[in-house]
């Protein structure tokens, strides 16, 4: 992941990842998006879906902004009436994944190379047509971009790419004060207040982030 980027102003910017729980009602996404437009910050990726909590959607939002902007963005998100919880992932141990669907022009004669590629990248073929095939791939951004790069380098023509944007979850047992105050959805063991914002020590990194 690129840690330091250069913004339009030349000021050093970095990638920020926010995970937020928002009320699942019409217009909420507009409010979130409008906030970033107002702050003149571009959203790099945004994924939204149902969460473990009834009536709350969970979103992962990645944006480029100055290093100091994280606090203000989180504070501003909280000012939106429909935003319930905001977690600034920052450098916390977390797992980030993205899903990509890639359609490649390929005939039965030249497919086999792509099959091998898919195997190497631990991706899957999910659709096979006479003149094309579709690859499903889940992974970190660099891995997906690696596959796309290799596909682009080969003779095969990439017809379509559909990427979900990033989804992020902290490692270990972690519940914010806000969500905790709202009550548990699953059984939770009591934990000291100070440890709430920390990832559980000793969690195993099964796949590198």
């Amino acid at each position: 992941m690129r840690a330091q980027l250069s913004g339009i102003s030349g000021k050093a910017v970095m990638l920020h990842t926010f995970v937020a729980y928002v009320e699942d009602i019409p217009g909420v996404l507009t409010r979130v998006a409008s906030l970033f437009r107002r702050l003149n910050i571009n959203i790099n990726s945004l994924t939204v879906g149902r969460s473990e909590r009834v009536g709350l959607s969970r979103l992962t939002l990645v944006c480029e902004a100055s290093a100091e902007a994280g606090h203000r963005i989180r504070a501003s998100l909280y000012k939106l009436e429909n935003v319930v919880d905001v977690d600034d992932i920052a450098q916390a141990p977390s797992v980030t994944r993205e899903l990509a669907l890639i359609k490649v022009a390929a005939t039965p004669q030249n497919r086999s190379y792509i099959f091998e590629l898919v195997e190497v990248f631990r991706a899957r073929i999910v659709d096979l047509a006479p003149e094309s095939l579709m690859i499903e791939m889940t992974g970190v951004e660099s891995k997906i971009e690696g596959l796309i790069q290799v596909l682009n380098e080969s003779e095969d023509r990439v017809l379509e790419i559909c990427r979900s944007g990033k989804m992020t979850m902290r490692r270990g047992h972690h519940t914010s004060r806000v969500l905790r105050a709202m009550g548990a959805t699953a059984e939770e063991k009591p934990e000291a207040e100070a440890q709430l914002d920390e990832a559980e020590v000793g969690s195993v990194d099964i796949e590198p982030a």
Binding site: E68, H71, R72, A75, S76, K79
Partner: peptide, 11 residues
């Protein structure tokens, strides 16, 4: 009272 004002213009 507004956390979004902290360090916004002046650190």
């Amino acid at each position: 009272v507004d956390p979004a004002e902290i360090n916004k213009n002046i650190a």
